[in-house]
Amino acid sequence: MSRTSFRLALTGLAAGLSLAFFQPAAQAAEGGPKPPALSWSFSGPFGKFDRAQLQRGFKVYKEVCASCHGANLVAFRNLSQPGGPEFTPGQVAALAATYQIKDGPNEQGEMFDRPGRPADRFPSPFPNEQAARAAQGGAYPPDFSVLAKARTYVRGFPMFVVDIFTQYQEQGPDYIHALLTGYKEPPAGFPALLPGQNFNEYMPGHLIAMPKPISDGQVEYPKGPDGKSPVPETVDQYARDVAAFMVWMAEPHLEQRKRLGLQVMAFLVIFAGLLYYTKKKVWSRMPDGSPAH
């Protein structure tokens, strides 16, 4: 009798929970389509950044995004450190010198501008949030430093459990790519857009203050030996490249982390194996020498 009641309770509980589990999927569908999962060079346990991609991504950031979006945690020197775009220190010093950095006060008590050094951080395009909002019609262009880790979308059950094993964690770049390629005409029946509003398929609520920031051919990529860029100069490719660059900005030690992880894992598995047999040996005899069982 108790067994039946147990089964009944289990069934009830399962029914209740499955109701709960399937609900968020329906809700997310209302919010908009899920960003497509792209294939990234840095995903998985052996993931590494594609240097050329990071360098292209930096070019897109510098020429397009940086006019509104800062990256105030990233220093020029980071661009030459291992595991990043790996520009040469000379290139970085030359690049830094093209920026004017506010320094001071000098002996006269005045702030002054000087050419940037590799140790300097990227100067922000606006002096403060209020100035940014004033210039952008009330919207604040977020800083890019950790944005790739600050953007995500709901995975829902059971995907969030599956992600533990597949190591999927590229919600950020997937979302950023989807957002950049998601500018569309609003569907019929969508409320008329007010000035300063733009329709985006992947933005939660679909209304975004940023107008379509980039179009095909806007950024010129380095040419290959045949005189043509090895990758297409399209919005899709720009979005992939800048998203990859943003992942690196948010997680500059990603490569080191995954490499060390592999070593640690290999060691722990071997150590656990040794301990398992040691444990078996120890437990095979009782203290008086008699067999354990």
Partner: peptide, 13 residues
Amino acid sequence: FLMLATGAAGAVG
């Protein structure tokens, strides 16, 4: 040998 190897691995860790 097993004890030695385990101990050594622990020390390395």
